[in-house]
C-alpha cells in the first residue's frame, strides 16, 4: 500500500497491522525521550487547505516523534477560491522532495486526485477530504475502542457502536462505518432523516432515527459534531430541538450499558450534541482519542514510509 486515502483501502490485516504497530509506538510516548530515529532524513508535508489545528498538530507530533522533518504548508485559498491550484501546490512540494503529503482539503476526492495524478511521487495520506473520508480518525477511534473494550488486541468482532449526528456531512462517519465493519463491529447510524445520506440503505451498517432505541444495546456511542449553521439549510428546526432529540446528556448516558464508552472526534459543541456532564464524565474518552491519534498517525507514517509489506 502506497497511500492512505480511504478506510476502504484497508483490509482487516492492514488495519490490524496499523493498530498493533500503533500500540508498540505508543510506548515511545511514555518515555522521557519521546523520539525514534525511524524516519530520520524523510520529509513529511502537512498540506492543509482547510483549518484544522488539532489534526495538523497530531500529524506533526507523530512525524516528529519518528524524527522526520516536518513542513507545514497552510494553503489557505485553494483553487476553489482562485488561489494557487492544487496541482501547482503539489508540484512545488514535489520539487522540495516531500516523501509524504498529509492533505486536508474541503473538496471530496482531493487526496485521491493528488495520489492518482503524476504531480507527486510521495505517499498521500488523507487527513480529511470534504464530506468524504478521514481514515486516520477512524483508525484512532478503532484503537480507542479496542483498548477499552477488547483488551487492546485483536479485532472488534461483535462490538456494537452507534454513530450519532450529522452523518450526511461527516467524513468521520464514512470512514468509521467502513473500518469498524472491516474489523467486525456492528455499526448503527443515528440521525434525523435529513442528515442521513441518500442511499445509506446500501451501506454496511444499520440505521435508526431514534437515539433512545439504540443506546441501551451499544458498547460505544460516537457523537458527531453538528454545526448549528445546518439549521439554516433546514436540516433541523433549531439547535434546541436537535439537542433534545439527538444530543447525549446525563439521562441518556444512564441508559447505556455499564461498560459503554462515549467518543467524540472533536471539537465538541458542548450543549449541542453533548452535554457538559457527559463530556466531563469518566466514560468520555476524548482525551485518550487525542493521544491515540498521535500513535495511530505514527504508525501510518511508519508503515507507509518505512515499509508496509506490499501486497503484490
Amino acid at each position: 500500500m502506497k497511500h492512505l486515502l480511504s478506510a476502504s483501502d484497508l483490509t482487516r490485516d492492514d488495519a490490524l497491522l496499523i493498530l498493533d504497530t500503533a500500540a508498540e509506538l505508543a510506548t515511545v510516548t511514555d518515555r522521557s525521550v519521546k523520539k525514534l530515529p525511524t524516519l530520520r532524513g524523510r520529509t513529511v508535508v502537512n498540506l492543509f487547505f482547510e483549518d484544522s489545528t488539532r489534526t495538523r498538530i497530531s500529524f506533526e507530533v507523530a512525524a516528529k516523534r519518528l524524527s522526520a522533518d516536518v513542513i507545514n504548508f497552510a494553503a489557505k485559498g485553494s483553487s476553489v477560491s482562485k488561489g494557487e491550484s492544487l496541482k501547482d501546490t503539489a508540484l512545488t512540494l514535489e520539487a522540495m522532495g516531500a516523501d509524504a503529503v498529509v492533505i486536508r482539503h474541503s473538496a471530496s476526492g482531493a487526496p485521491h486526485r493528488l495520489a492518482h495524478s503524476d504531480w507527486i511521487q510521495g505517499a498521500v495520506i488523507n487527513a480529511g477530504d470534504g464530506t468524504h473520508e478521514h481514515p486516520t480518525q477512524a483508525l484512532l477511534d478503532a484503537f480507542t475502542l479496542r483498548q477499552h473494550l477488547r483488551g487492546g488486541a485483536g479485532d472488534l468482532a461483535g462490538l456494537r457502536v452507534a454513530i450519532v449526528g450529522d452523518v450526511l456531512h461527516s467524513r468521520v462517519a464514512r470512514s468509521n462505518v467502513t473500518l469498524l465493519r472491516t474489523l467486525g463491529a456492528e455499526v448503527t447510524l443515528v440521525a434525523p432523516p435529513t442528515l442521513m445520506p441518500y442511499g445509506v440503505d446500501g451501506w454496511p451498517c444499520s440505521t435508526s432515527f431514534d437515539i433512545d432505541d439504540v443506546l441501551p444495546s451499544v458498547d460505544a456511542v460516537m457523537m458527531l459534531r453538528v454545526q448549528a449553521e445546518r439549521m439554516q439549510a433546514a436540516y433541523f428546526p433549531s439547535a434546541h430541538e436537535y439537542s433534545r432529540r439527538y444530543g447525549i446528556d446525563a439521562a441518556r448516558m444512564a441508559v447505556l450499558p455499564e461498560h459503554a464508552i462515549v467518543l467524540h472526534p472533536g471539537p465538541m459543541n458542548r450543549g449541542m450534541e453533548i452535554s457538559a456532564d457527559v463530556a466531563d464524565s469518566p466514560r468520555a474518552v476524548m482525551v485518550e482519542q487525542v493521544a491515540n491519534g498521535v500513535s495511530v498517525r505514527m504508525s501510518v507514517l511508519y508503515l507507509l514510509l518505512g515499509g508496509m509489506p506490499d501486497e503484490a
Partner: peptide, 18 residues
Amino acid sequence: AQMNESELSGRLGLAGWP
C-alpha cells in the same frame, strides 16, 4: 450539487443532484 444523487454520491461525499 456535484454528481447524480445516489448511493455512490453518498459514499463519495459529493453533494447529490437528484
